[in-house]
Structures are given as C-alpha cells and as structure tokens.
C-alpha cells in the first residue's frame, strides 16, 4: 500500500484563504455586480447630474429597501427548493395588523410604546402566515407553489375584511422617524434597516448551522434526513422566516407610505423572486447568497429609476427588466457550465 500523500490536497491556512477568495471570484455576486455597475455607468453617462446626484442615489436605496427585505426571506425559501408567493399579501396583512393596533391606541398621535407594540404585532402576524405556509408544505404535503398561492389569497382577503376595504394610515412619529427620516441628512433609515436585515440574515445563511442545513435541505433532502437533520422542522422555520421578514416589510411599508393598500404590492412576489434569481439563487434549490440577492434587487430598481430620468415611456420598463432577467440568467447558466467542466 502507498503511504499517505497530501500533495494534491489544498492545504489550510493562508492558501486555504486564497482558495476562498478564488471561489468568491467565481460566484454569481461578482457577475451580477458587474451588470449593476454597468447599468449604473450607462445611466450616469447619459444624465450625470440627474442620475449620479446624492438625491437620486438616495432614492434608489429607499426604493430598494422594502424589496430587499422581502427578497432576503425569499432567498432562504428558494434555496430550500421552495417558493413563497404570499410575501406581498402577507406584507399588506402585517401592515393592517400593525396599523390597527396603532390606530386603537392613539392613531396619528400614537406614542413610541404603541408604535413598538403595533410593529411587534405586525411582525408576529407575518410570522404566523409563514408558519402556516411551512405547515402546509411539510405536514400537508402541498406543493409550495399552491400552498403559498392559497395563503396569498387568504392573507389579502382577510386584510381587506379587517379594513372593510378602506385604507389605514400610520402614526406621524412612525412616518417621520422611520419612513422619511435621513440620518445626518444623508442616510435614509429605511435603507439602513434593510441593510441591517441583509447583513444579519446573510450571516445566518453563510456562517451558521441553520444556513448550512438550509442549503443541504434544498440540495438533497434525503441526504439531509440521513445525517439526522429534521427536514420538515427546518422547512417550517425557513417559511416562518420568510413570513417574519414580510411582516418587517409590512411595518416599513406602513412607515414609508402611511397606507395599507395592496396597490403597489401585487407584484412584490415577482420582484422578490426576480431579485433572488438575478442574484444567482438557483430555482432548483441548494445555492444562492444574500449578497447576490441584494445586487439582484438593485438591478431592476436602478433600471426603473434610470428610465424615468431618461424620460422613456414607462412601459419600456417591463421590457428592460425582462431582458435584464433573461440576459442575467443566460450568463449564469454559461458560468455554471464552465464551472462544472473543471
């Protein structure tokens, strides 16, 4: 028998670190970031003063805040091989619950205790819908597409039943301090909250056992089961996490618009899914990153913003977003094929 030889195994330590950097370079994030920077450069070149000014850059980050929060939860769900169509409705439902609690205790003049209470109630309501999704998918054996399509309808319907179809507003303090406030006249609170969500949940996905098991469950549920991972329980937690973040988004939405209408949230699920997919999350499960998702959400927001500044007819926006999505997925496929070859 030959003696142990490690010549061809990559050593740990500094070389291992280098390997990690090399791996990073091969990830989707770098590619997608390139697309984002390219798009921004084009718009900045065409309309430097309007697009690249601090006001517009701030607008982009504010517009991306709520979609980022939703897409972070969506990324976890898609990595497990599932999908959550209900996020937009759950956002509205959570907003209604939060607004109701706040309205019952002072309405527009509610103090911070009431606002905190209402926010917790809204986030809890979102988490509740997430748990329902998780239980339907695991215990009920209902495909995620159908289970979350069902809760999409139920959450939206119940939100409208609760409000009699009328719009609810938010306390002034909430809109002034969270919705429209700029820290040091520059940093929008909404964007900071979204950034914090992305960092915390990005860490959860990349560096903890919970995150590792999320990838495993999406990659090969049978393998996960055999090594003792409780697959059903993990899936329920992931759907609950998506619901929780939809709840957070609901409160942020209330703060930003002081409104609980569905109007701008019918395509929230699509923008969250598109963000995750543009960011390199595989719809087949098992791969994806939060950093990629953040970049993936920013792309359509930047395109939207740029087209408005250029004064292009609004309908072109959908054409552009569709084209960007297809091109990004095309390059991603190409990159995957190259990777699998070596």
């Amino acid at each position: 028998m030959t003696r142990p030889s490690v010549a061809d195994i990559e050593p740990v330590g500094p070389a291992g670190q280098r390997g990690r950097l090399a791996r990073l370079a091969r990830t989707n994030v770098v590619w997608t970031l390139g697309v984002l920077v390219g798009l921004a450069a084009v718009f900045a070149a065409l309309r430097p003063e309007a697009f690249a000014g601090p006001f517009n850059i701030r607008t982009i980050f504010i517009n991306a805040a709520i979609p980022v929060v939703l897409a972070v939860g969506m990324t976890f769900v898609i990595i497990t091989g599932g999908i959550d169509l209900s996020v937009g409705s759950v956002l509205v439902f959570s907003g209604v619950v939060a607004a109701k609690v706040m309205a019952a205790n002072g309405a527009a003049d509610a103090d911070w205790t009431v606002i905190a209470l209402g926010s917790v109630a809204g986030v809890a309501a979102g988490t509740g819908w997430g748990l329902v999704n998780g239980l339907l998918v695991t215990k009920g054996r209902i495909p995620p597409l159908i289970a979350t399509l069902g809760t999409l309808g139920m959450a939206l319907g119940l939100a409208q039943v609760a409000t009699d179809g009328s719009d609810l507003g938010a306390p002034r303090r909430l809109t002034d301090v969270v919705g429209n406030h700029l820290i040091a006249r520059q940093l929008p609170v909404l964007a900071l909250v979204a950034a914090a969500v992305a960092v915390v949940f990005g860490w959860l996905l990349a560096a903890t056992r919970f995150g590792r098991h999320t990838y495993a469950v999406g990659s090969n549920p049978e393998a996960a089961r055999r090594v003792g991972i409780r697959v059903d329980r993990h899936l329920i937690r992931v759907y609950a996490l998506s619901g929780l973040l939809a709840g957070v988004a609901g409160v942020l939405n209330l703060a930003k618009f002081s409104s609980t209408t569905i109007a701008s949230h019918t395509e929230d699920n699509l923008s969250a899914i598109a963000g995750a997919v543009l960011g390199g999350t595989s719809l087949f499960g098992g791969s994806g990153t939060i950093a990629g998702t953040v970049v993936g959400v920013l792309i359509p927001v930047v395109v939207n913003d740029g087209l408005i500044i250029l004064g292009v007819q609004q309908f072109w926006l959908f054409v552009a977003v569709g084209a960007v999505l297809v091109v990004a997925v095309f390059f991603d496929q190409l990159r995957r094929r190259l990777r699998d070859r070596d």
Binding site: R212, Y215, A216, S219, N220, E222, A223, R226, V227
Partner: peptide
Amino acid sequence: YQDLALCDNLDIVQNMFLGRE
C-alpha cells in the same frame, strides 16, 4: 449506501460534516 446521498451544491468538507458541524 449505493446512492451515496451527498449534496451536490455543497463542497467536500461541508458534505463530510453535514449534520455534525
């Protein structure tokens, strides 16, 4: 087992320690 039950999307280390990280 014959089907090995490995996770394609995870690397060798991640597979070897899966469930016992």
